[in-house]
């Protein structure tokens, strides 16, 4: 945590952990009390806290965000969520509007599955294939990731514990998290968001396309929409400077 008075909480998306914010979060430490965390089942979190029923929907994760805010005594804080966490953070801000009055949604999607006129980017069968692939090949999302940075002599600050858990998703939980993420439909919740909201959208994002970002802008009252030059789904890694600048400008 930094020294500033106002709290700024960063939430990572599906597939990685708080390391996603490595190039972004530190930039705000001079002005804000910066907090990053791992969702249960991701990174270095305690998997014994996992309850399949609670985490079968994004509300379970949102509840955790609110709990973190309550634990830290946050009031009038800023929530920054990437990917699925953009929606998790929106849900958290709806649950606790006094706790988080400002919301930054990076590559958000309220629903990944196409539905009538709504283009989420995935067909229902795409998502079923995806979930089947996660279930059939859980290693892809989890254990094989870990050795990549183990024993990296250039990064002595990364302790054994952190390197061991980097971007590791518990294979059993990966399946549930994927299901909760890709089958969620929180379009109706967008209308309930009262926080001051910034939407950051990339070009060529196969997971949350521009039309989806525009949909979010149209349904979150008074929201600000910024189309970044960055491409892909992870501008916090591929274009951190642009992300930092856009958030600074908004705040």
């Amino acid at each position: 945590m930094g020294a500033g008075p106002r709290a700024m909480l960063f939430a990572h998306g599906f597939g990685c952990d708080q390391a996603m914010w490595r190039h972004v979060a530190p930039e705000f430490e001079d002005a804000f009390s910066v907090v990053t965390f791992d969702h249960v089942g991701s990174g270095g979190s305690d998997s014994s806290a996992y309850d399949p029923r609670k985490y079968s929907a994004l509300e379970g994760y949102a509840e955790d965000v609110v709990e973190i805010g309550r634990e830290l005594g946050i009031s009038g804080g800023i929530l920054v969520g990437h990917s699925v966490s953009a929606m998790i953070c929106a849900l958290a801000s709806i649950r606790a509007p006094g706790m988080f009055d400002t919301l930054v949604m990076v590559c958000p999607s309220p629903s990944y599955i196409d539905d009538g006129d709504y283009i989420g980017g995935f067909s229902a069968s795409n998502v079923e294939d995806l979930l089947a692939a996660v279930a059939a090949n859980p290693m892809a999302w989890s254990a094989t990731m870990a050795p990549a940075i183990m024993g990296n002599p250039d990064r002595p600050e990364l302790g054994e514990e952190l390197t061991d858990s980097f971007c590791r998703l518990d294979p059993r939980i990966a399946s549930d998290f994927a299901r909760a993420t890709f089958t969620a439909d929180n379009r109706a919740d967008l209308l309930k968001v009262t926080a001051r909201t910034l939407i950051l959208q990339c070009h060529d994002d196969i997971i949350a396309a521009e039309a989806v970002g525009e949909y979010v802008r149209e349904h979150v009252a008074g929201s600000t929409y910024v189309l970044l030059d960055a491409t892909g789904h992870c501008p916090n890694l591929s274009a951190p400077d642009e992300v930092v600048a856009a958030i600074r400008e908004f705040l």
């Binding site: 597939g15 390391a19 990917s83 995806l130 290693m139 094989t144 990731m145 892909g232 789904h233 992870c234």
Partner: peptide, 25 residues
């Protein structure tokens, strides 16, 4: 589709943060 999501959400972050991924199915 499934591999795209894996690549985008996990492998690319790894390659960018650590410069390396190995033995990914």
């Amino acid at each position: 589709m499934a591999a795209r999501v894996l690549f985008e959400t996990s492998l690319l972050p790894h390659l960018r943060l650590n410069g390396l991924v190995e033995e990914v199915s």
